[in-house]
């Protein structure tokens, strides 16, 4: 402490550590390695493009996403409408840009919910493993996992009822609940190995309370696989949201969402196949982006998997 304060007060330069930043490990090293993994870089770029255009949709999109022009229906791509117009004469590009809001919001927030609940349950179950609490939690997770995800999500959305305009999409809760077990299981498995480490035993010996050991000593050391799972999880959540919207159980019209645009376009396949290209490509690319990123992070975090 004294050394540091004297270094601050004196115009002297503290000697730099010998290792260069790239050799040091930690967040910066992680990022530089991630960028070197080509696919992860591509994934990041895709995610960046879709996220910024969704956030700044008002400034980016060429037209309104909901204004109908019946004289301009089902037009193929042109200079005016880069992706053409839909069955009500709305600009498809603008609708794809606005539709990204629903997909990304549902993807990120539902994974956030699943992470929060799943990690908490996994920490508790793993810390007190083989207790009654652990058994109850994990059997409940088994029960949730025994539903195919989309089926349970469908059933939950159906019981919660359709989302009204301006409301938080109900699919967020459905997808969040459905994906909790993945995070709980992953966390529990990690906790089981980490809690046997010396530093955790040391924390026990000095009498640190359980909550502190869980949150300060164990949690930071189980995050790596959770990051990977989250990125892949967002990809999965976006797919599920699009599937729900496609079936007509997502956000309701006129709010554009990629899944419902695809569903509407399917009816005009023989007249105007361009209708499905925009929203279909948007779902595909965003999911691809998050999958690339997840795979890239895993390669960086787990060198044994590299080159396989």
């Amino acid at each position: 402490m004294t050394i540091q304060s004297s270094a601050q007060s004196l115009p002297l330069r503290v000697p730099q550590p010998i290792a260069r930043p790239s050799e040091r490990g930690g967040a910066r090293d992680f990022l530089s390695r991630l960028l070197r993994a080509r696919l992860a870089g591509v994934g990041l770029i895709i995610i960046f493009v879709f996220t910024t255009s969704a956030i700044f949709a008002e400034n980016v999109s060429p037209y309104s996403s909901t204004k109908t022009t019946l004289t301009n229906r089902l037009k193929p791509p042109s200079e005016k409408n880069l992706l053409g117009t839909d069955e009500l004469g709305r600009d498809i590009l603008s609708r794809v840009i606005y539709g990204g809001r629903v997909s990304l919001q549902v993807g990120v927030v539902s994974v956030g919910i699943a992470l929060l609940v799943g990690v908490m349950l996994g920490l508790i179950a793993g810390y007190w493993s083989n207790s009654l609490l652990d058994n109850v939690i994990m059997r409940l997770m088994d029960a949730l996992l025994s539903f195919p995800a989309i089926v349970l999500a469908l059933a939950i959305v159906a019981t919660l009822g359709a989302s009204k305009e301006g409301e938080i999409p109900k699919s967020i809760w459905a997808i969040g609940i459905v994906t909790v077990p993945a995070y709980a299981r992953l966390t529990r498995g990690q906790v089981l190995t980490v809690r046997e480490r010396e530093y955790v035993l040391a924390a026990h010996t000095v009498g640190a309370p359980d909550a502190r050991i869980m949150l300060r000593h164990i949690l930071p050391n189980v995050t790596a696989p959770l990051i990977v799972q989250s990125s892949l999880g967002i990809a999965g959540a976006i797919l599920t949201e699009a599937a729900l919207s496609f079936l007509g159980l997502g956000v309701q019209p006129p709010t554009p969402s990629w899944g419902s645009m695809l569903s509407a376009g399917r009816g005009y396949l023989d007249i105007d196949p361009w209708l499905v290209v925009g929203p279909g490509a948007a779902i595909f690319l965003t999911v691809l982006g998050f999958n690339f990123l997840g795979d890239g992070i895993r390669d960086v975090l787990d060198p044994t998997l590299r080159n396989v």
Partner: peptide, 22 residues
């Protein structure tokens, strides 16, 4: 395979219908 994992099955279905049926 990498692309296949990210392909939503309902979009694939529409493309297949367009190519092989329509």
């Amino acid at each position: 395979a990498l692309l296949g994992i990210s392909m939503p099955n309902f979009f694939l279905a529409i493309l297949l219908i367009f190519i092989f049926a329509v």
